[in-house]
């Protein structure tokens, strides 16, 4: 399974898919199935991003080439996370889903409504970066209103912080409620054994 960057995915899904499958094929793996699994909000922020697209691929490769494949996957920036597992057989139904994606009727589904929340979150991140550039003495609490309040006294700053803090909490709670993942049906029953790539990174 691959977690792909949504910026790349929204430009072109087939290109994004080829990023992952290209790495596999480059090192002699034969990809049997590569399909879009889901586009969903992440349980925690990864590389300052709150949403991502998951791709599921089944491939055959020499055991020796797996380490090289993993290294290449680590270096690629459009692949945020990956998980390489050993699988005895391709589960039923996967081939049909793969074929359905290859057909001309397939269109990449629109992102759900809570994608709007994500975009504001990204803007917030950018504004935080700007704040850090403006003044390094501003401390940890970075907010869009901070550059305006650069001159006033410490007491006023404290008051500002008090006023700003509840608003920030409200936005966070909104995100949390909207983030409730629409757990998509995962009908595939895959038998996997350990070959996890998790702790390598």
């Amino acid at each position: 399974m691959f977690l792909l960057d949504n910026n790349v995915v929204r430009e072109d899904w087939t290109k994004a898919k080829e990023v992952a499958t290209g790495i596999l094929e480059k090192h002699g793996a034969s990809v049997t199935i590569a399909r879009r699994w889901a586009e969903r909000s992440l349980a925690y922020t990864i590389k300052k991003v709150n949403r991502g697209t998951y791709m599921l691929a089944y491939f055959e490769a020499d055991p020796g080439s797996i380490t090289i494949i993993r290294r290449d996957l680590e270096l690629n920036e459009s692949i945020m996370r990956y998980l390489v597992l050993k699988c005895d057989a391709v589960p039923e139904g996967e081939q049909e889903l793969h074929d359905a994606e290859l057909s001309t009727d397939f269109t990449v589904p629109e992102p759900p409504e809570d994608h709007v929340v994500d975009s504001t979150g990204e803007e917030d991140n950018e504004s935080n970066d700007l704040d850090i550039d403006v003044g390094f003495d501003s401390g940890l609490d970075a907010s869009p209103a901070r550059p305006k309040a650069a001159a006033p006294k410490a007491e006023e700053k404290a008051e500002d912080k008090k006023e700003e803090a509840p608003a920030a909490e409200v936005t966070e709670s909104k995100e949390e409620t909207k983030e409730a993942p629409a757990a998509e049906a995962t009908e595939s029953k895959e038998e996997t054994t350990e070959a996890a790539a998790s702790e390598e990174a």
């Binding site: 349980a43 925690y44 996370r81 597992l85 996890a196």
Partner: peptide, 18 residues
């Protein structure tokens, strides 16, 4: 345990509760 840890690694489940 293994399934939950894999899901956490992929960002599907949270490490810490909300």
């Amino acid at each position: 345990k293994q399934a939950i840890k894999r899901a956490r690694h992929m960002g599907l489940l949270a490490f810490v509760g909300q």
